[in-house]
Design a protein around this nucleic acid. Structure first.
Lengths: 333, 333
DNA sequence: TCTATTGGTTGGAGCGCTCCAATGCTGTAG
DNA sequence: CTACAGCATTGGAGCGCTCCAACCAATAGA
């Protein structure tokens, strides 16, 4: 169970501890002969450097902390994937913590991440108060993902939800729709911009917006449609707050006897793997999730390396993915 | 950017560094008066202990390493969720790394995890050779998830894939099906046990097994069904290797004019969130993913605490979730 | 009165490493 | 033959903490 230390390697190779340290860090000022001897000794002992001791002694860190508000959510999983790819590539490790969407739990998660003195911190859709964030930002570089904030000195990476919703409206209008309803995401993280984008795009086309309260789940999407149906006010097109909601809406529409997209067109948001299933084949708005993660990692690493001190605010352009749930109104199924 | 140390807190509170250490670790042998003074000083300075220095000095760690072969996969996300819940509850942190299903990358991920000298390591469906695992197992407790292995001294947590496939067969047989095809998962991680379970359950009922090569994707499921259709050998029931495959199969069946479950019943495997969507409503086999994660964390922590030295091999019982894609053969849609 | 005992407190060594100033060792110039 | 580079190498201090033996009252027992 006991692992060899630098001292052990030094002894075995017949050199000093400092020399071993130089070899381990790939310093050029070591003679080839000694280097080989050290590497051999390390190999024989099964030695690998102790990252924490290294970090303590050098007062630097190669760890990036990641606070994921909800690992369950596929969106974050893909963002983390992007973060991970860049981090690993640049020689950084990820240490991940989840907040469970509760400010108190998230607060603790944040503290425990900070106790590792990471080089930087990525907060994915955090719910902690701004004060806690700006507090932490005094100590280390921070990048905020999927939460816009004016905390000074903090980088942000966001998808432009307004633009995305606008794309959906434009698409439907170009197909000939005029009666387009938005199923709102309520408390969901990006629902505000999406709603605003919908409303302003409708206004742009001279159409009257209709926003129906809903949530980011398929059950909520179905419920919203059922209410519309009961009220006798089913539109020719629906823009859901996300893909799950859209799938629920489709299912309720079909149960009520409407054909999709024959009678009603439906657009989702997020382009989750769900939307791509041929059984679903949902027209939806794609957020470049992986790229969001990559940009976040890059922003962090730039700061860590001192290559940049000005905050950067990435606003990524979503794109529309047209599949089989949208068509001209009254068209063939 | 510079954070206060224990020394600073001690000075401010007018006590020794050792006393601050005791307070921080919640030792009972500190007078209330001093404790309060220390806590106040810490608060005022914004001090929080340095986890790495602590770990170095105490030669213990509160970090559990997690190697996820593929974060993208919702299955692992949920397992990590379970791990996370237990770990946090027991005062451990998770440090996560991904291997990307490549032995070389995974090997590096493993090394970098080990360089943090974590208290234990959870490997989720690793692809590295057994030798590497048993090597690491000499240094720290390891739990293997979704990969059965006879490495001595290593704990494992697995779902009983054979039993799960058997449940699906039993269910279909009890509905009256006799012509049941299995769409095999090929290289997929648990496809072997699932296939074996299918074959032996069929044998048990005196039925002839039919295994069709496929994969863990919806496109592959659709392709397999199309082949069956072209060969004119569409069965009355299909057991897919996983939910994605099942959804693909359903979509291809419907396109070919078969009703599900009227003409053909379909069973998935995994009970992903996809299966629960009302639009899909797939009968499937549930693996207790969250519990798999919890058990893995518990196994690790028991070892870390020295509460157990014998390896434990959890084999979890899957359960059948009956929804709307299975019915008696030839029954109403 | 003197010695145990107890509970609170402290200084110092040391965890495995990095970093820096200092050392020894060539080789070349003066 | 001394001086001085230039280079490879080294000892030691120190990162922020824990742990241990020692210490210091204050109280209890003999």
């Amino acid at each position: 169970m006991v692992r060899p230390t630098m001292e052990d390697v030094a002894k075995r190779a017949g050199v000093s501890r400092a020399l071993v340290s130089l070899v381990m860090r790939g310093s050029p000022k070591v003679s080839e002969q000694r280097r080989a001897a050290v590497l051999r000794a390390a190999e024989e002992l099964g030695y690998s450097p102790h990252a924490m001791a290294r970090s303590l002694a050098s007062r630097t860190s190669t760890v990036l902390g990641v606070m994921v508000s909800d690992l369950h959510n596929a969106f974050f999983a893909e963002v983390v994937d992007g973060l991970d790819a860049v981090a690993r590539d640049q020689g950084f490790e990820l240490i991940i913590n989840t907040g469970g969407r509760s400010p108190a739990r998230e607060r603790r998660a944040l503290d425990s991440l900070l106790s590792f003195r990471p080089a930087g911190l990525a907060l994915l859709s955090p719910v902690v108060p701004t004060a806690a964030i700006s507090n932490a930002a005094d100590h280390l570089p921070i990048v905020l993902v999927a939460r816009s904030s004016r905390v000074s000195g903090v980088d942000t990476v966001n998808d432009d939800g307004e633009q995305g919703a606008g794309l959906a409206v434009d698409h439907l209008v170009s197909l000939g729709h005029r009666d387009i309803v938005h199923l709102d995401g309520g408390e969901g993280s990006q629902s505000g911009p999406r709603r605003r984008g919908y409303v302003s795009a409708m206004a742009k086309h001279g159409l009257e917006p209709r926003v129906v309260a809903s949530e980011y789940t398929d059950a909520a999407g179905a419920r919203a449609v059922e209410e519309l149906h009961r009220g006798g006010r089913v539109p020719t097109a629906v823009i859901s707050c996300n893909d799950f909601n859209a799938v629920g809406a489709i299912s309720a529409l079909e149960e009520a006897g409407f054909r999709v997209p024959g009678d009603v067109s439906v657009v989702g948001y997020d382009n989750t793997s769900l939307a791509a299933l041929r059984h679903v084949s949902l027209t939806t708005v794609d957020q470049p999730r992986n790229q969001i993660g990559r940009l976040a990692a890059e922003a962090l690493i730039q700061r860590v390396r001192g290559e940049r001190t000005e905050p950067v605010r990435h606003l990524l352009h979503p794109s529309l993915v047209v599949r089989n749930t949208t068509a001209a109104p009254g068209g063939p199924s």
